[in-house]
Every structure is written in structure tokens, then in C-alpha cells.
Amino acid sequence: MRTKNIALSGLMLSLIIVLSIIESLFPALPFLPIGVKLGLSNIVIMYSIFFINKKNSFFLAFFKSFFVFLTRGLIASLLSFGGGILSILIIILFLSIFKNKISYLTLSILGAVFHNIGQISVLGIITNNVYIFYYLPVLIVSGIFMGIITGVLLQAIMPAFKKIFKK
């Protein structure tokens, strides 16, 4: 069981890395606010929370920010870590409060929104500047939209995921 988990985590981590590379290849869309991204790799982390186990998803978020550290430096990595951990915590919290009264789509939205909130909080701590939260409404609204997109993608990909990971 333990060996299987290690292999699975490695597989998912590489999926996360590939997805974030693919995402960086997309041209910046002119109608999107500055700094807003889709967050495709969050699909994998959400799948991990819902169907593998919670410890595994923290592991993934940690190593994702380690990868960001290697490629984009310390500050980007701290942002990734803050956003990733907060969004996992929030998803787990809502999942345990509402259980089956809440849909994957809403959890995905919450994950995206709190990913942004976590990142801007880390940013606020680093730059020591409260006015950064000026941008928060933009981030919440775009988080809702990106959360809808990743949530729909997750449900579309779910059958394929299950096939790979079931055995």
C-alpha cells in the first residue's frame, strides 16, 4: 500500500508539473486581469483530496512549491505554498462541514478563490503593504470563474482518472 502511494504521488506530482508548464505556454489573454491564471494543476490536487487522501494533497502542494522554487525563485515559491496550503485546508474544511451537501464545482470555486487569497496574503506579508488587498475583489471574482472552469474540467476528466488510479 505504501509503495503504491509513493508511486501514485510521484505520478500526480509530475502531472502537476506538466500542467503548469503547459499553462505557462498559453499566451496571456488580454481580457484577463493582471496576474490571473487558470490553475490547471489544481485539478490534480483536488482529485487527490477527494479520492486519494488528504496527506497526499499536502505533500503535492509542498513539492509543487518546491518545483516553483527551482524554476521561478523563492518568492514565487512562497506564494505558491501559501495559496496551495490555504486552498487545501479550506476545501477539507468545507468538505467535512457540508459532506455531500456540497458539489465538486463549489469546492473547486472555493479552492480557487482561497488560493488567490492565500497568495495575496503572503504577498501582503512580504511587501508589508496592506493596500495590496485592494486587488482582492478582482481576485475573488476571477477565482470564481477559474474555479468553475477547473471544476468542470475535473468532472470531465474524472472517469479517465479513475481508470488510471483504481487498480
Binding site: 456540497i102 458539489s103 464545482l105 470555486i109 478563490v113 470564481i144 468532472q155
Partner: peptide, 27 residues
């Protein structure tokens, strides 16, 4: 496929309202 329940709509509504609230505070 995407069935939204009451809690879902409520949470999304709260998120949008808090975005508006923060916007107006800064405004």
C-alpha cells in the same frame, strides 16, 4: 452533471457579496 444545491448557491453568493463589500470599503 453539474447539479447545484442550496449550499452551493449560498457559498457562491457569499463570495460575490464579500468581493463587493471589500471593493466598497476601499472605494
Amino acid at each position: 452533471m453539474l447539479k447545484l444545491k442550496k449550499t452551493d448557491l449560498l457559498i457562491i453568493l457569499i463570495l460575490i457579496l464579500s468581493a463587493l463589500l471589500i471593493y466598497f470599503i476601499f472605494y
